[in-house]
Design a protein around this nucleic acid. Structure first.
Lengths: 144, 144
DNA sequence: GTACAACTTTGAGCGTGCTCAAAGTCAAGC
DNA sequence: GCTTGACTTTGAGCACGCTCAAAGTTGTAC
């Protein structure tokens, strides 16, 4: 057979998704109907792979399926939709930036809190607090 | 009345959650049964607030409810659980770090892709590609 | 005393994003 | 010819984290 291209399993592995998810994405229009081998099995092209990688990257950063659907739709409509597509990407980039901010705040807080736990464990091992070391006590850090 | 403390609505606003969520968290054991006014309404303390803020922060960074439940449980058990609690926090901090990584990768990719869109839009306005400017073409960037 | 608002409870329902079950087709190997 | 295994389809089911509906109580304002 010619029937060239990746099988659904191969593509699933390459993109870090399951075959289930690939079929689901096709079903909801995130990817155009994939070409078929003569036996009816899907065969994915390199172009499909690039697009699926992109989708995966967007999902991994919490873009809703809805937004991805809209983007995919515009992409099918061609060059005239470029501005709207760019806006979607810019919005998502902004969303990512604010996620990063939130995560970094939490990361810093946890670092403090973990240090505080270590201090407590130290104290417990030695027996009782050390006079000259002030308690770490910034709200969240000591909330549990 | 004495019945001092924050009402559920007040606490919801302070913590950026809904009253629904506060009741839900209590129901699933993320917070110990909250004290009540004489009319049976919940009254939240400052300590509750600190703890709820902490929970909110963990949720906002995608800690599963399960993990939060485990942490809350250990917290109730007292100092002897300090090591396990710290481990939970360290694991979550690691999870946060890897989320940040993923997000930053996507952010950079989007920045490239957006720049590419701008270039295309430019070209479209002027009419045709400019000879001396190489196409940006790094897989994901041009995948749609 | 009656309207109204803010709470209470229990249990059900929902949106998202998969994930799987069932039944069937097809091609290769023994 | 029959088994095996990878695929196919459709529609249902699931895990998570809320979110809401219904029915009831309480306290304040008029």
């Amino acid at each position: 057979m010619q029937d060239s291209g990746y099988t659904i399993q191969e593509m699933a592995e390459r993109c870090g998704m399951t075959a289930h998810t690939l079929r689901y994405y096709e079903r909801v229009g995130l990817i155009q109907p994939v070409s078929r081998a003569r036996n009816g099995h899907r065969r994915y092209s390199e172009a499909d792979e690039a697009w699926l990688h992109f989708l995966h990257c967007m999902r991994a950063t919490n873009m809703p399926i809805r937004a991805m659907q809209r983007y995919a739709e515009l992409r099918e409509l061609g060059d005239s939709t470029s501005l709207e597509r760019r806006k979607i990407l810019e919005d998502h980039r902004a969303a990512i930036a604010s996620q990063i901010q939130e995560l970094e705040k939490a990361h810093a807080m946890l670092t403090h809190k973990i240090a505080n736990y270590k201090k407590i464990e130290q104290r417990t091992r030695i027996g009782g607090p050390i006079a000259d070391e002030p308690e770490v006590d910034c709200s969240l850090v000591t909330a549990g």
